[in-house]
């Protein structure tokens, strides 16, 4: 793998961010603070030894909230990217292997999803009141439901990219000798697709999943920012920016940090995904 400096920095940064988010409870213990504790007497404080990044509009420690927000944002990003890729892989395999009408219909749908204005539609889906769908009010309001709903929504729009990549890989794999051989041996199409084609399409799936993480983190942040994703008091990098906009004249600092972390995460993931693609795609060597 032709790892450039940028790739190493990106990988290192992601590792640090993930570690920091996972160890948030430890940081909480070490600092002797409660991440959720509201203290209106010490709101919007500048950085100090007690609060390395200062406090937010409710006097909560900004650093701790960033760490906990990172847990949510990164977990949603990873989960939704994996779900989206799984859906995309299934559809891409079916389209590429079955071909013909199935292929035409599935790819039309994929193109349709890519071409639609996704954000307005996501807003509608995110605003749907789950109690009207028969969920009990407790479950509909819970934090876990909010996260699960976000994962489902974002995967619903995230799958076409993987589907197209997997389909392209399947189309070329389908004509290879070992697939012919498997077919000659009388294996069922399902078995051939899963046992012989899928493992050989692992590279594009990996690339697509990596790149999807970046997109998903962006979508999560936008929806949470608009008040439709992760809802306070649970912090996410997106919803921490919601309040920051109103306070932009009082304390612009609050608007900087969460966005910076989203930006660094997405940039790192995209750089890694690109490096992976170059490393795994033999054609890329000739193109350069």
């Amino acid at each position: 793998m032709r790892a450039t400096l940028a790739t190493w920095v990106a990988g290192g940064l992601l590792a640090v961010l993930a570690m920091a988010a996972v160890t948030a409870p430890l940081a909480e213990l070490a600092m002797g603070l409660d991440a959720q504790a509201v203290d209106l007497f010490s709101r919007l404080q500048p950085p100090s030894p007690a609060h390395p990044l200062g406090t937010d509009e409710l006097g909560r420690d900004l650093l701790l909230r960033l760490l906990y927000g990172g847990q949510v944002s990164l977990a949603v990003g990873l989960a939704a990217a994996v779900v989206a890729s799984a859906i995309g892989t299934g559809i891409g395999l079916a389209a590429g292997y079955l071909g013909g009408r199935v292929d035409a219909v599935l790819m039309r749908v994929a193109d349709g999803v890519i071409a639609l204005p996704l954000l307005p539609l996501l807003i509608v889906l995110a605003a749907v009141d789950l109690t009207k769908l028969g969920f009990p009010p407790d479950a509909a309001q819970s934090e876990l439901t909010a996260i699960a709903r976000l994962v489902i929504l974002v995967s619903l729009v995230g799958w076409p990219v993987t589907a197209r990549l997997v389909r392209a890989a399947t189309l070329s794999l389908r004509r290879r000798e070992f697939v012919e051989a498997a077919r000659a041996l009388g294996f069922s199409p399902l078995r051939i697709a899963l046992r012989h084609v899928l493992p050989n399409a692992a590279a594009p799936i990996l690339v697509a999943t990596t790149l999807a993480v970046g997109n998903v983190v962006l979508f999560e942040s936008v929806l949470s920012f608009l008040g439709l994703g992760i809802r306070p008091p649970t912090p996410s990098w997106g919803n921490m920016l919601t309040g920051a906009q109103e306070l932009i004249w009082e304390d612009p600092r609050l608007a900087i940090w969460p966005g910076l972390l989203i930006f660094l995460t997405v940039v790192s993931v995209n750089l890694l995904g690109d490096a992976l693609r170059d490393a795994l795609d033999p054609r890329a060597l000739t193109r350069r």
Binding site: G214, S221, L241, A244, G259, I262, F263, V266, V267
Partner: peptide, 12 residues
Amino acid sequence: GISVPPFWLALL
């Protein structure tokens, strides 16, 4: 440019 959240760029 691809990675920056647009609403954050607006805030900046």
